[in-house]
């Protein structure tokens, strides 16, 4: 296990180093401000005392959050989102883990490289095309087979488009993992299942948790596909917030967005912590 930390030179050596060029700090600041300022403004105005999303008035308060939580439709959209996201995240992570193991371990088979491309291709396909294709798929299913899973349609669609996102970090982790560790386990009398459970899986945790986080975020805030596939009563948070923008805008919208953002951040930070704890144990 080589030491992964690299020495950062504290002294300017005179050699060309991008980090020490003039303007580097300024450019960094501009990027950070452009990225985060709008979100900070959104956040701040969610506590606005007036009912404008652009003009500040009155004392900061929780009014718009109370309003949002009192909104029956917002709550039902939140419930739908949680159901769909949880199901899609769990199933897609499981499928992606199995796929990653299947394509990096065991006997090599013909078309192994092609599978990598096929699994990842959806990442390159414009989402609107996936959305229309998914819509026609479910229409055909309903029309000719009479099958409609209700909210299950959305869960299925989300599961499918989450798989490549979950697959990437898990596969990367597996490829970086020394296969001799699994051989060592087998050499020490571990059956393939024991070797997986005791060696591969624990070491794969950072990859799986990164995959889970990606799948969660992608499913949680999906708009395009959900918009086309969702039936009546299947409104999710992004769809509901989008619908809200058609009416007069109030800071209630800011509050809803802040809640969405908070859930995303919580989840990402959580999975990062899990991955990091495991990594610090193993590297």
């Amino acid at each position: 296990m080589a030491d992964a930390t690299t020495e950062v030179p504290l002294v300017r050596t005179g050699a060309f180093d991008l980090k020490w060029q003039p303007g580097f700090g300024v450019a960094t600041m501009v990027c950070l401000v452009l990225l985060y300022a709008p979100m900070i403004v959104l956040f701040v105005f969610s506590f606005n005392g007036s009912d404008s999303i652009t003009r500040w008035g009155g004392l900061p308060n929780w009014h718009w959050y109370t309003e949002a939580f009192a909104d029956q439709e917002f709550r039902s959209a939140a419930m739908n989102t949680i159901k769909i996201t949880v199901v899609a995240t769990i199933i897609s992570t499981l499928v992606a883990t199995a796929a990653a193991i299947g394509t990096t371990r065991g006997r090599r088979f013909a078309g192994q490289g092609a599978i990598y491309t096929v699994v990842n291709l959806p990442l390159m396909v414009p989402e609107i095309i996936t959305a229309i294709a998914t819509l026609s798929f479910f229409s055909l299913l309903a029309q000719y087979a009479g099958i409609n899973f209700g909210i299950g349609n959305l869960m299925l669609a989300h599961t499918v488009f989450c798989i490549p996102f979950a697959y990437m970090p898990i596969r990367a982790r597996l490829e970086g993992m020394d296969e001799r560790l699994e051989q060592a386990a087998a050499d020490l009398y571990a059956t393939p299942w024991q070797a997986f459970k005791r060696v591969t899986l624990p070491l794969l945790v950072p990859g799986i948790s990164a995959g889970t986080a990606l799948a969660f975020i992608v499913s949680f805030d999906d708009f395009t596909i959900t918009q086309l596939v969702a039936g009546p009563g299947q409104t999710t948070l992004p769809l509901y917030i989008w619908a809200k923008t058609r009416r007069p805008l109030t800071p209630e919208l800011n509050a809803m967005c802040t809640i969405l953002l908070a859930i995303s951040i919580l989840f990402v930070v959580g999975s990062f912590l899990i991955a990091n704890r495991r990594r610090s144990k193993t590297e």
Binding site: M1, R180, L181, A185, V199, L203, R278, K281, T282
Partner: peptide, 8 residues
């Protein structure tokens, strides 16, 4: 050769 000790 590289020992392959279980890091966890």
């Amino acid at each position: 050769q590289n020992y392959a000790l279980f890091p966890h």
